[in-house]
Amino acid sequence: MSTKWFIVINPTSGNGASKKKWPAIYTELIHQNFEFEFAFTEYEKHSIILIQNALNKGFTKIICVGGDGTIHNVVNAVLSLNPKNLQQIKIGIIPIGTGNDWVKTYHISKDYKEAIKIIKAEKTIVQDIGKLQIKCSGKEIYFNNLAGIGFDGYVVNKVHKYKNLGFLAYFTGAIVSLTSYKRSNLKIVFNKTTLQGKTLMLLIGIGTYSGGGMRLTQNPNAIDGLFDITYVNKITLFTILSNIRGLFNGNITKLKFVQNYKTSNLKVIVLDTQETYIQADGEIIGSGNFNVSILPKAINFIVA
């Protein structure tokens, strides 16, 4: 087992900020006495191959330099390989991205020097992970923060146009998309509950924040073995605009048109013919029917 760190850098994170900041991050890692190897991702999902190669070489300590999508890919790389020493693997994050939502739950600093100090201390939490199985493709996708279908996926599919706006990208995309989105006819089954009808969106939360700092689930707990579910049948542009503060402080989830649930698994069936996007950790992963289950305390993350 290697005591060295393997570092994967997404050079496109934060509109290219990762690539620009890497020389300074490299110098700081040396200054803080890290032994490491590193690699840049060169194309979408390349991090999955890089991480799998690193695990096969015996690395158990991994650092992501990038945003939520980079963390998402690293988690998928680790769990898709299903290593026998999974409990020994630790993932640390130097956050450089558009939303940086997952790190907000754990108060991980966006200052790279502080983030490196946090990683060096190696304080870990064993966090739950979501496993999403898409029926039509047979794909299995893991997520560490939040997944969703409906309006949420629709916005993520469009939000790349607004990446230059940083953390406001998702909010801007949501406002622009609200007038054009047609609600999907969904059947959602979990526990002894069935929700069916025209649906604005369904959110499946593990972490606290999404969409650039919004709090769209009511009572998430990343280690309780349960998803925090938010179900919204319908909402108007006026309601959103009059509750902007509620989007960011969580009060939006207390409004009467928002339903909140807790469950460890659920089934989603799309009842109409329009393509309905599924997103996981801010990445479009497919469309159509899917099942979701939780993997309790599945991965060690290094946190503040």
Rank of each mutant, 00 (worst) to 15 (best):
Y142L: 12
K20S: 03
Y112T: 07
E37V: 09
A174Q: 08
L255T: 15
Y162C: 08
G211C: 02
T194G: 03
L132Y: 02
G69Q: 03
S137C: 12
I204F: 03
T276S: 09
A147H: 07
K234E: 14
G173H: 12
K254R: 14
I89L: 03
G225W: 01
I89T: 11
K254E: 12
Q218E: 02
H107W: 05
V75C: 00
E42D: 09
K267C: 08
T236D: 07
N85P: 01
T253K: 13
V103W: 01
K262Q: 15
V78N: 02
E122H: 02
D224L: 02
N243G: 09
G207D: 01
Y261C: 06
V156H: 04
P296C: 00
F290D: 07
I125P: 02
K84S: 10
H107K: 13
I71H: 05
F190K: 13
S264F: 06
K120L: 00
M1H: 11
A169N: 03
A17Y: 05
E28Y: 05
I294P: 10
K135C: 06
H46F: 01
Q88D: 13
I96H: 04
A304S: 05
N185K: 15
N15L: 01
Y26A: 01
L29F: 06
K182C: 05
I63M: 07
I223Q: 14
S47Q: 03
D101Y: 01
N145Y: 10
W102F: 13
S13V: 11
N291E: 14
G130S: 10
G148S: 09
G14I: 10
T263L: 04
K90T: 08
Y181T: 13
I285K: 03
F301C: 03
G148W: 08
I96R: 00
L186P: 14
T263I: 12
D68L: 01
S177G: 09
Q32M: 02
K104S: 00
I285A: 05
L241H: 14
Y170M: 08
L255E: 15
N10F: 00
